[in-house]
């Protein structure tokens, strides 16, 4: 394992913290879960994404980085077809989840979104109780046959999101009453509750303070054991800390993607190099 060279400026000194987290050098060797080929996205007449092709491996964290407006969120939303809910958005190309075409007419988008969960930039708990927030998904998909079973799902989801200890005595209080970091973990728990295979996170920490951010990062690292995760982040250090693979987007193009170490230490493209050393973005 190679440490970042001096090419990376001071702003990435947090990167060195990564040495403590476990690396999975075999991330590339893992089976591919999501496969995108020549994906283009248009918002009305305007093209936002140009021929993006990428493989997202199982049980690893893939980070999408790039300057604002480069299409990271747009690409993430393609993977669970949340772009369908945006007026005038059009997607071309092919996206496969376990070999099935996600945009195939025969695929049920409801089922897809149950398999590919999403956590948003701003915590968005429903204005319901903590319990109801978690129970929402399982109830819709009929995952619990009894109250006891539902209680079990709620507890295990909150535990996986390492929120259980903080909220176990106040499950009936509104989810909107939690702190920002707790709300975001609640949203992660909510996504986990429907047992997705893939979890998409769009800047999950951008509204949080460093301590809450550290908690979420720790959580992401734990979730990696069981889930396939794709995360959008503006923080180079965060990408370095939590991800095994990194993809760099610029102006709607996927410029480069590969193992995180490699992207950060010896990127093939000059634009990637400039971005991670803070020369633009």
């Amino acid at each position: 394992m190679q440490m970042p060279s001096e090419k990376i400026v001071a702003s990435t000194d947090l990167y060195s913290m990564k040495s403590s987290t476990i690396r999975t050098p075999d991330a590339e060797a893992r089976p591919v879960r999501v496969k995108a080929r020549e994906v283009c996205v248009f918002y009305g007449p305007k093209q936002a994404l140009f021929d993006v092709s990428i493989d997202i491996p199982e049980k690893a964290v893939t980070a999408f980085i790039g300057p604002s407006g480069c299409g990271k969120s747009t690409f993430l939303r393609c993977l669970n077809r949340m772009n369908d809910t945006i007026e005038g958005a059009r997607v071309t190309g092919r996206i496969e989840l376990d070999g099935d075409d996600v945009y195939d007419a025969s695929l049920d988008v409801v089922e897809l979104r149950a398999r590919v969960g999403m956590v948003f930039q701003k915590p968005n708990p429903f204005p319901k109780s903590i319990y109801e927030n978690i129970a929402y998904g399982p109830r819709i998909h009929g995952l619990a046959a009894s109250k006891a079973e539902m209680d079990g799902i709620v507890e295990s989801s909150l535990q996986k999101a390492s929120l259980w200890d903080e909220v176990k005595d106040r499950l009936q209080e509104p989810g909107t009453g939690l702190s920002g970091g707790q709300q975001q973990r609640l949203c992660i728990a909510r996504a986990i509750a429907v047992s997705p295979e893939v979890i998409l996170m769009d800047e999950p920490c951008s509204a949080l303070d460093p301590i809450a951010t550290a908690k979420i990062e720790e959580l992401i690292d734990e979730l990696r054991e069981n889930y396939t995760i794709a995360i959008v982040t503006h923080s180079m250090q965060q990408a370095a800390r939590v991800s095994q693979r990194t993809a760099f987007f610029h102006l709607g193009n996927l410029v480069e993607e590969g193992p995180t170490d490699q992207i950060f230490t010896s990127p093939a493209e000059k634009r990637t190099q400039d971005y991670i050393t803070g020369r633009f973005g």
Partner: peptide, 20 residues
């Protein structure tokens, strides 16, 4: 964000309207 949160969990549009 409420709507997206619900749709993102795999709720249909009418479920989202009714429940959220």
């Amino acid at each position: 964000a409420m709507r997206d949160g619900s749709l993102g969990l795999g709720a249909t549009q009418s479920e989202t309207i009714k429940r959220v």
